[in-house]
Design a protein around this nucleic acid. Structure first.
Lengths: 188, 188
DNA sequence: AGACAACCGTACAGCTTGGACCATAGGAAT
DNA sequence: ATTCCTATGGTCCAAGCTGTACGGTTGTCT
């Protein structure tokens, strides 16, 4: 069995937590929760499910007629694979895939279009933060759950981004890192 | 001409800033700078260059023998396209592609493996931060340049991540967002 | 009945990814 | 000189991923 992609574990994780679902149902779950942190286009869900079925990690039962739903269920092998991933994973480095930062990087030093970019980005991040706040209040996310923690990180990131772009917009470009200079890696 | 991918603009941007280069040279530039924010596998550089050449945004001149280098140069059309992207772009939302957060999301509430995960992640982010610090001191990044700003954001993100995971590790899970609750999006 | 929205699946061209492989050039060591 | 090592530079390719468009089904409202 080849190594599974992180997306595969999104499928396994959701099936494990919420029980059998159709790919469509998975899509609903993903949008508005983990989709913010790990994008997952709908079209991939079907192929991903098929792949997982091929490896025996989920079972697929398709209705013969009508909507021809594919009901997915996680198998014992799938649950085991998930558990293994949850505890011991290779920890690929994170990557901030932010087109705004990319554009900033390629701006000329004197370009005053930087300020325009900063204003745009600040707005965008404010919007995203508002979505998160909405999620926390509306959706029934259990207190002290890992889901809430994840979302908290998302909000903190948005706050950081808002502050970052706002300072650029106002011309207060800070060179040094923030107040508390988190120290170098501990020797191990 | 189809819409270009962000990666295409990485190529255009580097050629525009540093002058003609081989794909290999681009790769060197990317690793250790913008590569942290927008991953770009080497093999894609050649196809991306070919695509840009097809659209007339760069010119490719390949040596007939020896190392058969492909020297890439940005064309006027390419520079125009770049300038257009720099000023007016559609601003796709950012996405934190962090496998660590993904794993956190799928942890069970009572799992004490959360702490182990947090410890791992904290270490990883400390390492990444150290790389950034190295870059700032070593590489000749101009003061007050957009490149330095981008890197600053990277460092601030790492500090945030370190703090986030450290708190989880120590069991101090904070529900609310950080001190200054950056306000809702301004009405527009 | 008809219109409409939500539900659910399929198809596919083009792009991306990771890794393996090969070949050249320059320098260092024997 | 010959060998070896490393950096340089390119090519290939099977998989997987992405976006988008399309086509049916079911429930609901009028």
């Amino acid at each position: 069995m080849p190594t599974l992609s992180p997306s595969a574990f999104v499928v396994l994780g959701l099936l494990d937590r919420y029980g059998p679902m159709t790919p469509y149902g998975l899509d609903q779950r993903i949008q508005g929760s983990i989709g913010y942190f790990w994008g997952f286009p709908r079209s991939q869900l079907y192929s991903e499910a098929a792949r997982l079925a091929r490896f025996g990690l989920v079972t697929e039962v398709q209705e013969a007629e009508g909507r021809r739903r594919r009901l997915l269920s996680i198998t014992d092998a799938g649950a085991a694979e998930l558990a293994r991933w949850l505890t011991q994973a290779p920890t690929e480095p994170a990557e901030i895939r932010d087109a705004g930062l990319l554009r900033l990087f390629f701006q000329g030093s004197s370009d005053q279009s930087v300020e325009q970019l900063a204003a745009e980005q600040e707005q965008a991040h404010r919007g995203r933060l508002a979505e998160y706040v909405q999620l926390v209040t509306d959706a029934g996310i259990p207190e002290n759950s890992p889901q809430l923690l994840t979302l908290t990180m998302g909000m903190r990131y948005e706050e950081l981004a808002i502050d970052f772009w706002a300072k650029i917009k106002d011309g207060r470009t800070q060179i040094s890192t923030s107040a508390t200079p988190a120290c170098a890696p501990t020797t191990e």
